[in-house]
């Protein structure tokens, strides 16, 4: 038994699939009651890592702990400590929303009275209460996802895994689901471990790791990661750009260029730099805008690739997934 502040911990985790190293020497620690984002392109090893953490796969070497329990030796206790929303939906589409949750309650040995209360409370929380007696096959993709999150929370898990929770959803359902997810650590006292492709989703994580080819290539808060690419860019227009540029060059230590009628100030802390610029140039300034680096810039810098290169293969995989999600066994 292993005890310390981190609710999820891996030590040199490795998983090989005949010849292919899907997870490569992974060391992770996740603090309790936070949202941890696991970001990476297709085939990076995100799902494989989750499968090891949730006891469905045995690691080739290395160890993983959830809530202090070893994922191999103490699988039973790990299973009691986690809830999970898999990448592809795992609801029974012939059963109603209520029945799916009730099945889960029995499976996890909840008491009858308690499970009834819990189901109603979670259906309310996920805004699904009105549809509780409809078979899941009539649900939209977003509703199915929300139901799965509700199901994953039924048994008061310590950790909730979300594997690409918003994949294949339209922007509105994405936002709807997202709104619920960000509240979970507070509202349901749970640590969220989620994988995603979407950069904007990663922004709200307390901490995140970027994984590529099974290896973690960067880890930190979203802010820290973005600082890695070298700070913000301030775009500035002045009455006389030439003169403004010269003045700024004397007073501010930063890369300054002029292009297309705009002055660029690179690699600064935008929120400090803008007041400074205005103090220096005063009336001269016509407009100022600030561009913060995105996580996409981080990924680009670290790997030389966009996180979604959009190779035909990936798009194909993607379209099959969303197809299946929609037409899964009617």
């Amino acid at each position: 038994m292993y005890r310390m502040a981190s609710i999820i911990k891996t030590e040199s985790l490795v998983k090989d699939f005949d010849g292919l190293r899907a997870v490569d020497n992974l060391n992770l620690e996740v603090e309790e009651r936070t949202i941890f984002g696991f970001l990476g392109p297709n085939g990076a090893g995100k799902t494989t890592t989750i499968n090891i953490l949730c006891t469905l796969l045995r690691p080739t070497s290395g160890r993983a702990f959830i809530n202090g329990y070893d994922c191999v030796k103490d699988a039973h206790r790990v299973r009691s400590s986690i809830g999970i929303v898999f990448q592809d939906t795992t609801l029974d589409k012939d059963l109603t929303a209520y029945e799916n949750l009730l099945f889960h309650a029995y499976l996890y040995g909840l008491k009858r009275e308690e499970s009834k209360k819990r189901i109603e409370e979670l259906l309310q929380f996920m805004d699904l209460y009105d549809r509780k007696d409809e078979p899941v096959k009539r649900f939209s993709g977003g509703m199915k996802r929300r139901l799965e999150v509700a199901r994953g929370l039924m048994h008061y898990p310590k950790v909730l895994f979300l594997d690409e929770p918003t994949l294949g959803l339209d922007p509105q359902s994405r936002a709807g689901l997202w709104e619920h997810i960000v509240r979970l650590p507070e509202s349901h006292n749970v640590t969220v471990f989620m994988t995603t492709h979407y950069m904007d989703e990663a922004e709200v994580c307390n901490r995140m790791a970027i994984i590529d080819h099974g290896r973690i290539i960067a880890e930190g808060t979203p802010e820290e990661l973005k600082r890695m690419v070298g700070g913000d860019v301030v775009y500035l227009r002045a009455k006389d750009n030439k003169m403004a540029k010269e003045i700024l060059k004397e007073r501010i230590i930063a890369d300054i260029e002029e292009r297309n009628g705009e002055i660029f100030v690179h690699g600064v802390k935008g929120d400090v730099c803008i007041p400074e610029i205005i103090r220096i140039l005063g009336e001269q300034v016509l407009s100022v805008r600030l561009q913060r680096p995105t996580l996409n810039d981080v990924f680009l810098k670290l790997t030389g690739r966009q996180i979604r290169e959009g190779s035909p293969e990936d798009e194909f995989k993607e379209s099959i997934r969303s197809y299946r999600r929609r037409f899964d066994r009617t």
Partner: peptide
């Protein structure tokens, strides 16, 4: 089946 298999 995964829903059943991850249960304790």
């Amino acid at each position: 089946l995964k829903e059943i298999l991850v249960a304790p």
